[in-house]
Amino acid sequence: MTTSTTVIETNDTIAKRWRRATEEPAWLRIVLITLALAFVALFLVLPLSVVLYGAFERGISVWYEAIRDPDAMSAIRLTLLIVAIVVPLNTLFGIAAAWAIAKFEFRGKPILISLIDMPFAISPVVVGLIFVILFGSQGWLGPWLLANDMRIIFAVPGIVIVIAFGTLPFIARELIPLMQQQGKEEEEASLTLGANGWKTFWYVTLPNIKWGLIYGVILCNARAMGEFGAVAVVSGRIRGETNTMPLHIEVLYNEYMFTAAFAVSSLLTGLALVTIAIKSVVEWQEEHRQRLAAV
C-alpha cells in the first residue's frame, strides 16, 4: 500500500514537472486567451456586428428582398463564376511555386519569393491602371483587341485577370513556410521506396501540406470575393453585367440603400461559415482515418 502511494506521488511530481516543461501555467493561458479574444472582439467581432446589424435592422424580409433583387443576383452569380475560375488556377500555381521554392535550392530565391509577394504590395488602384495601360483602347494591346472585336477590360475576362493577379500569392505563400519547415526527407524516402512523383505528391506531400493548402484556398477565395479597387477600374460598372458583389454594394450604398448594401455584405460574411464547414470536414476525416488506423 505504502509503496504504491509513494510511486503515485513520484509519478505525480514527475507529471507536474513534465507539464511545467511542455505547457504554460493556467494563469498565463487565461491571460493569453483573454488578450487574443480582446483583440478579436475589437477588430473582428465589432465590425462584423456593424454589418449584421445594418443588414437585419429592418427585418429578415427586407434582407431577403435585397438579395433577390435581379442586379444583386447577377452580381452574386458573377462573383461566384470568377471565384470558380480564379481559385483553381491560383491553387495549381501556388502548389507548383511553393514546391519549386521549398524543395529546390537555387540562386535568387529571395527574389522569386519577393516577386510572388508583389501583387499584395501593389495598390489595387495601380493594378487597375496596369491593365488599363495594357488592354485599354489607348493602351498597347487595345487597338489590336478592338480590331479583332475582342474584349478584355470592361468585360468578364478583365475582371478575372485582375482578381487572379491580386490573389496570386495566397496559396504559394501559405505553403512555402510550411514546406520549408517540413523539409524533403519524407518525399525522398517515398521515392527511394519506389513510388513515382505523382504518388509521392498525392500520398506524402499533399497530406503534409493539407492545412496550409486549406488556409490558402480559404484566403484566396475570400479575397477573390471581396476585391474592389482594381475591379472598379476595369469592370466598367455596367449594371447587371459587370458589377461584382463589392461593386454592387457600393452602388447600393451610393443610392442610400444602406440596408440592402449591408445585406449583400452579410452574404460575404457568410463565408466564415464555409470556413467552419471545410475545417470540420477535414478534421472529421482525419479522426475517421486515425480510428481506422487504430483498429
Binding site: L44, V51, L268, T269
Partner: peptide, 11 residues
C-alpha cells in the same frame, strides 16, 4: 479571422 479579406474594403 478571414473576414477582413472577404468583406470588400469599402464595407
Amino acid at each position: 479571422v478571414d473576414l477582413p479579406f472577404a468583406l470588400p474594403t469599402a464595407v
